[in-house]
């Protein structure tokens, strides 16, 4: 089989180029395993990120035959093609080969205050949370921050200031959590075109997410909470 891999080294190349390798994958081999074999046996200079090899650490997002996915969870056989084309995630600058600069992604993450805000001291026997309420956040906590959604998002392509689906889904996760007491002003921070109103609702993030987080559900949820919060405030002002 042929593997066509995008190569780029900012320290020596003017522009990215494709390099072609031949490699015979083993049965059930994943694209990440194929990349490692190619690196170990043919070209040790090939760079890509990896860690867990089981789709939980979020290191190995890339574009494989035109589709954004995790290399460690994509089986070569399932691609049904004789040629595998591998490129780095779009919407982010290439640092080396398949490694991109995730700074904009992490900056957006930090912007939403991605931590639980529970006031007071640790309750002696822990928080009491209904089983069902806790399970509501489970959809969002499976997010591994792989940046696949950010890369797939047409708004992030257009506008570098847009915080993107993962960060917004993260914020929504906290607003769903009965232990969280962040003030409404924390939501207002994403009440604009860089935040929830930037979303085009084309749901590319939902389609692409390798962990079925459905970030757009979170964006929708935040929009509803923001509108509800503002309406409430409006009524409160009226006598």
């Amino acid at each position: 089989m042929t593997f066509k891999i995008l190569r780029f080294d900012a320290q020596k190349d003017n522009r990215p180029y494709f390099q072609v390798y031949r490699h015979v994958p083993k049965p059930h081999e994943t694209v990440l395993e194929a990349l490692k074999d190619i690196r170990d046996q043919q070209d040790p200079s090939l760079s890509f990120r990896y860690s867990c090899r089981e789709a939980v650490c979020g290191s190995c997002g890339m574009v494989i035959n035109g589709r954004i996915c995790l290399a460690c969870r994509t089986q070569v056989g399932d691609l049904g093609a004789n040629e595998v084309v591998i490129e780095p995630l779009p919407n982010l600058e290439i640092q080396k080969d398949l490694i991109v600069d995730l700074k904009p992604f992490w900056d957006a993450y930090r912007k939403v205050e991605p931590f639980l805000q529970a006031p007071g001291d640790v309750p002696e026997k822990g928080h009491v949370v209904a089983e069902k309420d806790m399970e509501k956040v489970f959809q969002y906590i499976t997010c591994i921050l792989c940046a696949c959604c950010y890369s797939a998002c047409p708004v992030a392509t257009r506008d570098g200031r847009y915080v993107g689906p993962a960060a917004l889904a993260k914020l929504y996760r906290f607003t769903l959590d009965p232990r969280d007491r962040r003030p409404f002003s924390a939501l207002e921070r994403v009440d604009g075109p860089d935040g929830v109103w930037g979303c085009d609702t084309v749901f590319r993030c939902n389609d692409i997410c390798p962990k079925d987080v459905r970030p757009a559900d979170g964006i929708e949820g935040l929009r509803r909470k923001i509108i509800a919060g503002k309406t409430k405030r409006l009524f409160r002002r009226k006598p």
């Binding site: 931590f115 639980l116 529970a118 001291d121 640790v122 309750p123 002696e124 026997k125 822990g126 928080h127 009491v128 949370v129 209904a130 089983e131 806790m134 399970e135 956040v137 489970f138 906590i141 906290f174 959590d177 232990r179 969280d180």
Partner: peptide
């Protein structure tokens, strides 16, 4: 465990709401 819970760890719950 209680501190992790207070920091936001979404532990699964028993029907009585405890961890």
């Amino acid at each position: 465990i209680y501190e992790l819970d207070h920091w936001g760890a979404p532990f699964s719950r028993f029907p009585d709401g405890s961890i």
